[in-house]
Design a protein around this nucleic acid. Structure first.
Lengths: 355, 355
DNA sequence: ATGAAAGCGCTAACAA
DNA sequence: TTGTTAGCGCTTTCAT
């Protein structure tokens, strides 16, 4: 009877069906489905009821096709970080992202990069318009991810200040918006705290050289201790083990040190272990400050760690907000040719017993 | 000049543009883009070149609209499990899923459920046709997720045999395909191993009652020890702490026990701790077998744990394969009205020093 | 306030 | 083998 063949039994109802049932046009049905602004209440009601009865759910692809909005954001996680999901750090950041994305009615599409071999696939995906934007984490400087993202021309926000050129606004490379903690400021605060305690020989256990967060913390240390003996700085890699090694090194070079600022709680706990093995009391003989406030560590050590806290979940949420701002074009205002702004979130010194 | 207005500078080239540039029809261009079967080589070349020069990338939404295929699969993770990402178990399973999905040119969309309040959102998403199917994990019996997925009418595969009715093929509820390890068989093997060692009073530390995997392991234990003293079974919840408590309980009830089969390595390690505190030697006085073979635990204990291994990554991959089979309709063959099959993967006893 | 109609970019019959 | 054409389901001017 009907001109158009009846829909297959398994297929979902379309807007058309809703409109028919409500006795309105597709346009009106669409308006109602999208908020119903400018439609008279009785009609709104009719359509709503039809939607209900038919169990209508908008077809995403069709909508995307015309609106050019996907309602999805990619979160790119490279293997080394994923491994670190055990690291409360990452879990928290992803949780923040997930929550904020939900608040923006967007979905999280997880792109798991296991190696450079996956870059092609990722690039194709990003370029294919599957997602409105991407969230990535600043990994090591030599990482190829940034350029992949750049080529895909997809709006992106980084977690952590990227270390490659262009990130800081170098002409040539586009400025990438990022969200980072105030690592430098936090480090300064940690060191100043140690000085305020009367400590005079404050050592530093630094994180990996190719991580901007680690380097920023060294810079903060140096900001306060302008003329610090280079021998007071030892290199670590953010692991417990490296913290222990670095501590041993420092003790060998400067047995007279009376304070240590470690660039991560994990390294601080390693340092603490060595300190105790050597019979040095914390904080009496050596005061110790960590960084991150990973409570599973900082509250568990004996004594608990004084450390620098960063609001990791908040940083995750901020990444999303920044991205949304870019997506909504609020960054491309005609007057200001300004690049999308990055955000530095404040840190906070958390005093516990170790310093 | 042209009938259609020139595309906006920012927009991506369409198939139309590629076709025009290659001097062919859209249909031919489409054919080439999708493999190029049945198109003569010279044309294929031309089109390929045009694609290259224009940097053409197919529009996903448009393609999905007509093919009704998304190339995306949702992985639904509820908060409690996400937390367990620290659990190598989950990380491995998701890795398996991710790899297999990639092999099938599908994307992983992570749906993170923080609580029952999220069910609506999840249901809407699943129903909206954003994904071709869903992968979920069998959580506790009272979980509402299964029904959400059922209502959304989206093909799904579960990790772990669901505990709710219908899962086992109860009429009324649709049978949900799942992938699970042979928990019962593995448990039997563990207990038989203990018996083969000459042990006569084998106790069991069971996992949570609302987890089918845990209950299956109890069943396996009972299969072998038909007339076991109920006092030889103690209740745990898969945590280290609960394993310790259960061990203490067992020792109080049956000081004469000479073997323990714990339903998880974590609980086994807790039991081990208590055993040693009581001055009991493992395996001399009490032989101990765990389950899971989480090497970070089983290889680290002293003595290392004899345990039952399951191929977790493989199970993840299998979940995807099963789903793909459903998606490709290979399960709906006219003749067989059979429900999509579930898969039970074999386990393997790994002998170390504890038994 | 509502409806008619024009596409969004692509695939898949169907023709040629 | 290639091209023509008809939609997929939706949003959005533009009329009314």
């Amino acid at each position: 009877m009907s001109r158009k063949p009846d829909p297959a039994p398994g297929s979902r109802p379309t807007l058309e069906a809703v409109a028919a049932r409500a006795g309105v046009s597709r346009a009106t049905a669409s308006r109602v489905v999208n908020g119903g602004a400018g439609v008279r209440p009785p009609l709104v009601d009719k359509v709503r009821r039809a939607v209900e009865e038919l169990g209508y759910v908008p077809n995403h692809a069709a909508r995307t096709l015309v609106t050019r909005r996907n309602g999805a954001v990619a979160v790119i996680i490279a293997e080394p970080e994923f491994r670190i999901f055990s690291d409360p750090f990452f879990e928290q950041q992803v949780r923040g992202i997930s929550r904020e994305l939900t608040a923006h009615d967007s979905q999280l599409v997880l792109l798991w990069v296991e190696g450079p071999g996956d870059y092609d696939r990722i690039g194709r995906y990003l370029g294919g318009g599957h997602v409105d934007g991407a969230l990535a984490f600043s990994v090591h400087n030599d990482d190829g991810l940034p350029s992949i993202i750049g080529r895909a021309q997809v709006p992106a926000v980084f977690g952590g200040r990227p270390g490659w050129p262009g990130a800081s606004g170098t002409p040539g490379g586009p400025a990438v918006p990022y969200v980072d903690a105030d690592n430098r400021g936090g480090a300064r605060e940690a060191v100043r705290h140690l000085l305020s305690l009367g400590r005079e020989r404050v050592a530093h256990i630094a994180g990996p050289r190719d991580l901007t967060s680690a380097m920023d913390r060294v810079d903060g240390y140096r900001d306060v201790l302008l003329d610090a003996d280079p021998g007071l700085i030892a290199q670590g890699d953010f692991t417990e083990e490296s913290g222990a090694r670095a501590m041993a090194e420092l003790l060998a070079r400067r047995p007279d040190l009376d304070a240590v600022f470690a660039a991560s709680d994990l390294m601080a706990s390693g340092a603490l272990r060595v300190l105790r093995e050597r019979g040095l009391r914390v904080p009496e003989d050596v005061a110790l400050v960590g960084f991150d406030d990973m409570t599973s560590i900082s509250e568990a050590t004996d004594p608990p760690l004084t450390t620098v806290r960063q609001d990791v979940e908040g940083m995750g949420r901020l990444m999303v907000r920044l991205l949304m701002r870019v997506l909504n074009g609020q960054e491309t205002e005609p007057g200001t040719g300004s690049a999308p702004g990055s955000v530095i979130t404040p840190t906070e010194l958390v005093r516990r017993a170790s310093a």
